[in-house]
Amino acid sequence: MPPDPYPNNKPWQAHTRQRLRTDGTPAEAALWRRLQRRQLGGLRFRRQFGVGPYVLDFYCPAARLAVELDGAVHDDPARAAYDATRTHHLARVGVRVIRFENRRVFDEPDAVLAAIAEAAGLA
């Protein structure tokens, strides 16, 4: 994996990261309750973590894994194109991205956690 050429959690992102944590979606809050404090296989996840120019919903540095939750706004073609560009950039710096629709966090929480564990190399 190539190292990330950008420093993480850039100072100019601090306000954005804090706002995203404060104004997060209910799905983000629900998933965070299951990921925080190394509850998933002992892996440490960070919430609203900056990698390069992007702020990720959840990031596991040990697995170089980003977990993104998508609401209805991500159905917009312009947003989908932005997400594809973002995912491509993150892949170039060695970060894998997995995405879930917000509703899956509530409808299938165990399946979401199992998919995250598998992507992180735990399963």
Rank of each mutant, 00 (worst) to 15 (best):
M1F: 06
P2A: 06
P2M: 05
P3C: 09
P3V: 09
P5I: 15
P7A: 06
P7W: 07
N9Y: 03
N9C: 13
P11Y: 11
W12P: 05
W12F: 13
A14Q: 14
H15Q: 14
R19A: 14
R19Q: 14
R19W: 11
L20Q: 13
T22K: 12
D23F: 11
G24T: 08
G24C: 15
G24S: 15
T25W: 05
P26T: 04
P26I: 04
P26W: 03
A29M: 04
A30E: 10
L31H: 00
L31I: 02
W32M: 06
R33Q: 15
R33S: 15
R34Q: 15
L35E: 03
Q36I: 02
Q36C: 12
R37S: 15
R38N: 02
R38T: 02
Q39P: 07
L43W: 08
L43S: 05
F45V: 00
R46E: 10
R47V: 05
R47C: 11
G50R: 10
V51I: 03
G52Y: 07
Y54A: 08
D57E: 06
D57V: 00
D57A: 04
F58P: 06
F58E: 04
Y59K: 01
A63K: 10
R64G: 08
A66L: 04
V67K: 00
V67D: 00
E68G: 12
E68R: 11
L69D: 02
V73R: 14
D76T: 02
A78M: 07
A78T: 09
R79M: 12
A80T: 07
A80K: 12
A80D: 07
A80N: 04
Y82G: 10
D83E: 07
A84C: 08
R86M: 00
H88E: 15
H89T: 12
H89A: 13
R96I: 05
I98D: 00
R99A: 09
R99D: 10
F100T: 03
E101K: 12
R104Y: 12
V105I: 09
V105P: 02
F106P: 00
D107M: 08
E108D: 12
P109Q: 02
V112M: 06
V112H: 14
V112W: 14
L113H: 00
L113V: 01
A115Y: 07
I116W: 01
E118Q: 14
A119D: 04
A120T: 05
A123L: 00
